[in-house]
């Protein structure tokens, strides 16, 4: 089973300790924000896997644990059949070469004092890939032409603030590809980009994936682009995956009440909806991860919740059919 996955996370958890007041210290009470609370999934080689959820659902924290920017509290991270949950400095540096990240805000992800040249050169310098300056330059130009930034010579001398949003994200992409990684984690890579160029970037990312044999982990809150862009989707709620499957399974045949609510809430550019008040099946907002409800964690907002949802232990992610997983005890009834 293992071999089909490039990356696999098993019961991954990230609990951030909450600052305690004096009485809590005395009583030895410990409280945690359970940002990620037992997440398991695997990403196949060559796949685009999406993590979808509202803000605060733990999707970015999961990505950062895979990037090893956050230390996991518990669980396992497996990369190419090797456990990389706890690794020493040397292996970490090797791992960093294989796994790269593209951030939501391309401008913030580049040092404003760095020219495009410095931005692209950094990974090469850190991993000491080419000793020769000219060789590095060649590699950088090559990287820029891959993301369709032409002419590369001209752009190398520019600062990030002189570029448009789309160009910046292309540069950020080029940087992440400088080391020829196997997995690229993308945290909302197009949400800050103008609609008219958004599709162009996504198209380019798809092309690069095929060209360079990459695997993507795509973090987003936007179901619509995920449908177009990804192969598999995992929907997260409050630190847990509640449903997982292909875009068709998730969007057209959703099983979990939370997924259904998300889909119902999405706006569509269609006429004739102005005077209709749309049905939003769930009330309220996502609760704090410091105070996770008992039983099924979605029950306080779930329109179908029964007392059993509270008293029963938390539902596990079970397979409905054909790799379509759902974590709801009553999904068949609703």
């Amino acid at each position: 089973m293992n071999s089909e996955y490039l990356v696999e996370v098993k019961d991954l958890k990230k609990w951030f300790p909450v600052r305690r007041d004096f009485s809590q210290v005395i009583k030895k009470e410990r409280k945690f924000v359970k940002a990620v609370d037992g997440v398991s999934f695997g990403i196949k080689k060559g796949e685009i896997f999406a993590l979808i959820g509202e803000s605060g659902c733990g999707k970015t924290t999961t990505a950062k644990m895979i990037m090893k920017l956050h230390e996991a509290t518990a669980g396992q991270l497996i990369f190419e059949n090797n456990d990389v949950t706890n690794v020493d400095k040397k292996r970490l540096l090797e791992y960093r070469k294989e796994v790269q990240m593209i951030f939501q805000d391309p401008y913030a992800s580049m040092n404003p004092r760095f020219k495009v040249r410095d931005v692209l050169e950094e990974p090469l310098l850190i991993h000491k890939l080419y000793a020769d300056r000219d060789e590095r330059l060649e590699k950088m130009k090559d990287g820029l032409s891959k993301v369709k930034i032409t002419p590369p010579e001209e752009f190398l001398e520019r600062y990030p603030h002189m570029l448009s949003g789309g160009q910046r994200q292309r540069i950020a992409t080029a940087r992440s590809l400088m080391l020829s990684p196997k997995l690229v984690v993308m945290d909302e890579p197009v949400s800050m980009i103008d609609l008219s160029t958004r599709a162009e970037i996504l198209y380019m990312l798809k092309e690069l994936k095929n060209e360079m044999d990459l695997t993507y982990l795509y973090i987003t809150h936007d179901l619509s682009t995920a449908r177009y862009f990804t192969d598999r989707i995992a929907v997260m709620y409050l630190g847990k995956v509640v449903e997982m499957g292909t875009p068709e399974q998730i969007i057209d045949n959703s099983l979990h009440p939370y997924t259904k609510a998300l889909i119902a809430a999405v706006c569509e550019p269609k006429s004739g909806k102005v005077n209709i008040v749309k049905e939003v099946p769930i009330k309220g907002e996502i609760p704090s991860a410091a105070n996770i409800p008992q039983g099924c964690r979605f029950h306080p907002r779930c329109p179908y919740a029964k007392p059993s949802c509270i008293s029963n232990p938390e539902p596990k992610l079970i397979e409905h059919n054909n790799d379509h997983f759902v974590a709801c005890d009553r999904y068949k009834e609703i």
């Binding site: 990037m67 920017l69 970490l92 540096l93 960093r96 070469k97 790269q100 990240m101 951030f103 805000d105 913030a108 992800s109 580049m110 040092n111 950094e122 990974p123 850190i126 991993h127 950020a172 940087r175 080391l179």
Partner: peptide
């Protein structure tokens, strides 16, 4: 806390760098 610090950590930059 800037993203680009995180970005360069993700690339593998050392603390000194």
């Amino acid at each position: 806390e800037e993203t680009y610090i995180e970005a360069s950590k993700a690339i593998g930059a050392s603390n000194t760098r």
